[in-house]
Nucleic acid binder design. Structure first.
Length: 271
DNA sequence: AAAAGCCCCTGGATGC
DNA sequence: TGCATCCAGGGGCTTT
């Protein structure tokens, strides 16, 4: 589910409401992708200072240390003064003085991990190799183009890998490539500089549009306030296999790239 | 260094 | 109705 826009929308929906809250208790459900890395009791008494984002990770700054939260494929957060009793897929409940923060994650590819700081070896392992933030000033068109020249893999898979630019998942990779008319199977290194520049801009545009739309709700995503997104209704190609391209009416095609589905218009994305 | 596969896990949709 | 199969928003790890 959650690509950068969904994670950012989640962050925006509770960051201000949780800031300043004191942690009162933590309840764990089934194991997630990684263990919490500290005892739940050790978190009690600490204060939530802020919620930041790096790629698809949320960084919850505490008065001492921080929590890294990843939503995996099926995760979502809820933050409210009160929530129903935890269900079978609610695997992390953090009661604070300002509300209950809950991670709901049926597939359990997500995680909540405590680290002492961003220099913590575990934090470095998880965050250290990430590419540039696409919605920041660091996302420079020329450097983006220079990074792509060194990659022989298909451009779709380079975008998905997160090693050049973070946060672009399956939906937004497909959408950005459609916007600029690039065939997803095209080798990254074979793109002209001009096309790299246009792709850079398309990534910025599509991610910003998705954040404004509240993200994409394919199955059950909602932000921490329980609101669904609607960007899924605006996709040009993602999830539209066999349906007519919204620009030229050619049926949208679906292929497999690296165990993931790719959607594109064979006419609008000729090469 | 980069690329390609594998795997973690559950649930919904589809087909027989 | 029941069961098998396939597919899903990610990404770390291991092997080439």
């Amino acid at each position: 589910m959650p690509e950068l826009p969904e994670v950012e929308v989640t962050r925006l929906s509770f960051a201000e409401r949780i800031a300043g809250a004191r942690i009162e208790s933590v309840r764990l459900g089934k194991p997630l992708r990684w263990p919490l890395n500290c005892s739940p009791k050790a978190l009690c008494g600490r204060t939530v200072l802020a919620v930041r984002r790096r790629g698809k990770y949320l960084l919850v700054d505490l008065s001492e240390g921080l929590l890294l939260i990843h939503l995996g494929m099926s995760g979502s957060l809820a933050f409210a003064p009160a929530l129903p009793a935890p269900g079978p897929h609610d695997h992390f409940d953090m009661q604070t003085s300002q509300g209950l923060l809950r991670l709901h994650d049926p597939r359990r590819f997500g995680a909540v991990v405590y680290v002492s700081g961003e220099d913590d070896p575990l934090a470095r392992k998880l965050l250290g190799k990430l590419g540039v933030e696409p919605l920041s000033a660091d996302f420079d068109a020329l450097r983006f183009a220079q990074a792509l020249v060194r990659r022989k893999a298909p451009i779709k898979q380079v975008l998905l890998s997160g090693s050049v630019v973070v946060g672009v998942g399956n939906i937004y990779a497909c959408e950005a490539l459609f916007i600029v008319g690039i065939r997803p199977t095209k080798r990254a290194a074979s793109l002209s500089r001009a096309r790299c520049f246009r792709l850079h801009q398309a990534i910025c545009d599509v991610l910003q549009s998705a954040v404004q739309a509240g993200g994409s709700t394919l199955r059950d995503f909602s932000n921490a306030d329980g609101q669904a997104g609607y960007f899924q209704n605006e996709t040009m190609v993602y999830g539209r296999a066999g349906q007519p391209c919204k620009l030229c009416a050619t049926p949208v095609r679906s292929i497999r790239q690296g165990q993931r589905s790719t959607f594109f218009c064979p006419t609008c994305q000729k090469a």
